[in-house]
Amino acid sequence: MTDRRRINGPSGGTSAPIFSKYLAKTPNELLERPTRSRPNNALRKMFLKTGVTPSASGSAYLELEASKNPKSTAPGLSSPSTSGLKLTCTVHGPRPLPKSAPFSPHIILTTHVKYAPFATRKRRGYLRDSSERDLGVHLETALRGVIIGDRWPKSGVEIIITILEGEEDQWWGDGIGHGNTAAAEWGMMSVLSGCITVASAAIADAGIDCVDVVAGGVAAVVKGSAKGPSPNLVLDPVPSEHKEIIAACIVGYLPSRDEITDLWVKGDIGHGNQNEDTAQSASYEELADSAVQAALGSHRVLIAALKETADVKIGRS
């Protein structure tokens, strides 16, 4: 369905044009794929802060460091190869249910995930599309296992996430005819992991009872580089940094209970020895375990951010 109420931009990509003379001048700088500079088991730097929206019951902001082309001298944001992640989350409630809603002995959880129109290189519409609704459903699954719903009868809570800067699904250069074009939506995985982490911080800020703080984590099997041809298992993958991602896994993990509330695996994995590529790559369990490791990393950031929140609220910062 098209949005008739607003004047919409073109539905295709609207990235700034690159002129051929500009390409010719510095071809290396522009057309070089960003490379992963951190070790395979390291996460990107993460910034998390709660209480960013005063009018909401709880809110949080999450930012992941943008990956830079190591040779690029331009500041991070103006470089065309950036791929960061910026999310804001607001929690409204617990508030009364609408009159038409049936009696509910526990809290009703509603999640909304929306990309800002400018969040990715390919412009997003104003209405939520199917991938955004998909993210919302996954987020709800991840959070429902954490919230103690019985403490808040007859009430609803709304969790709204706006993605200000989304992860790209592939390197932008791949889109213009260099390398493979068959990219799946790999960016969604990191986005969902970020959504889980940021929502968990906002819920704790809102004071809704939870059994634990749920943290999101992603791991992926990527095709090896020229140096090491065998597939690698990496934590917190940035899709634009890898030529080909074989499989990726995202978990919503409860560290103090050692439980998983949401698990989503995408890609080609777990066939045993059928395929030459996957024969050397990691198994399904290894991939999930790595995702849990990534979740543990973001959990540490979460705990630190929450303790900071409580300190500020008590007034002894």
């Binding site: 704790a204 004071g207 009872d209 939870c210 059994v211 209970r257 929450l306 409580a310 008590i314």
Partner: peptide
């Protein structure tokens, strides 16, 4: 809240 016969916190606070 109680989980596995030990008491755990369920909200953020002192």
């Amino acid at each position: 809240h109680i989980h596995a016969s030990s008491i755990h916190a369920s909200i953020l606070g002192p």
